[in-house]
Simulated assay, not measured.
Amino acid sequence: MVRRAFFVVLLLCISMVVLAAETREHTIHEILETTGARLQWDADRGIGVLRNANTYVSFRPGSRWGLVNYANQRELGEIRRVDGNIIFSAEAAETVLSILKPARQTSTDRYISTIFIDAGHGGRDPGAVGIHTINGERWEIKEKDIVLDVSMRLRDMLRRGFPERDIVMSREDDTYLRLEERTEAANSVELAENETIIFLSIHANATFNTRAKGFEVWVLPPEERRGGLVDSRTTGVSDPGVLSILNTIREEELTIESVLLSRSLLTGLEGSVGDVAPNRGMKTASWSVVRNARMPSVLVELGFVTNKEEALRMAEPDHLHNLALGLYNGIVEFIRYFEAPQ
């Protein structure tokens, strides 16, 4: 009888230990140690991103909801901040661990399925026009023609290099498109669960300073707000507060990816035309096409039509080829980063 009672007590003790282990909270450090993931923390917005190989989990203490792989909303569980530490409830820890340590499968890998090339201006909108005197005669070059030429060359390079991906253009001839039509076309591309699309709007520059020359890439300022990235129809979430948090998380992710895409493009252009055109770096502005594209997006300025030397160069097929090649190499590098296991 005593022996039986001893075993009953022992089983109760074991059950209590197991239950405690299953219900205890976890610190962010335990999550990182268990998964081998890395944490990126945005102190200004109070948003964290856990990354393990090709899997990303974005979260915000105080919200039960997060994003998986930049797009998929997921209810994680309670996450809160206590004395400067981030605490995951047992439910949240279990969910995050199951996401960051899934059974081996390829369906969770991030994949850039579509590259959208927007050749700026067109039709009745010539864009910037460079007017110069060459051998005593008036000569002009139009932005819309330069960017269409480079965009078509880039399209062909990408289709040869990535026949399995969709290469989409906003225009393939001298057609006028409203700004909204360009981003609407990109935003309407259908994607599978783990697929991503990137957006490049290609332009040529102009300024009153005729000495200015070189290439640059523009991204949206980090403080710029993008609405409508997350909605109740796609998430099944109706709480406006939760939707706002999810939208903020998505904004942060698009900002990071756009900056990385910008840097890759600048590196590619420097390698192909850096010997004749200076790298003017990455800049920020609230361009309509960049702001309204719900994906990693950049605006590229290939050079200045108002600089006589650079304008003449942008009329040469070899230079236009090199500009397209620089963009191609930048995209290749970004794809390699975006899709590579880490």
Rank of each mutant, 00 (worst) to 15 (best):
L260E: 11
R51I: 01
N292D: 01
H203D: 11
N72E: 13
G84H: 00
R160D: 15
F116V: 07
V82R: 15
I256H: 12
Y337M: 13
P240Y: 07
E195N: 07
Q73C: 13
T27G: 04
W41H: 05
G214A: 02
L302E: 05
S170A: 12
L12M: 15
W41I: 03
W287H: 08
A53H: 11
L32K: 04
R233W: 12
E181M: 04
I99F: 08
I131R: 14
V129T: 05
F334C: 10
A192C: 10
E140Y: 02
N135S: 14
E172V: 14
E94H: 15
M152G: 07
A212T: 09
N194W: 14
I47V: 10
A324Q: 09
Q105F: 11
K308G: 08
S58G: 12
D174C: 02
M1P: 15
R45D: 14
E184I: 02
L177T: 08
E216W: 00
E33P: 08
G62A: 01
I79D: 04
T235C: 04
V49A: 10
P341V: 05
E184M: 08
K144G: 01
P126T: 05
F334S: 03
E140M: 13
T95Q: 08
N209I: 09
D275I: 00
N69I: 03
L327F: 06
R51Q: 08
A43M: 12
G130F: 05
T196Y: 08
E78D: 13
H319D: 10
F338T: 02
W65A: 07
L320I: 10
L220A: 08
A21Q: 13
L261S: 05
A285K: 11
L10C: 14
N194V: 10
E94Y: 13
S170I: 00
K308F: 11
P221F: 04
V129F: 03
V219G: 06
N85M: 15
L158Q: 05
A315K: 06
E257M: 03
L191K: 10
V242H: 06
K144M: 06
E137M: 04
A185F: 05
V82H: 14
R64H: 13
M314G: 08
A315P: 05
V305P: 00
E224S: 13
G236L: 03
L246C: 12
G48P: 03
V298P: 04
G122I: 09
G62R: 09
T255M: 14
T267S: 13
S201A: 07
S297R: 03
L320Q: 12
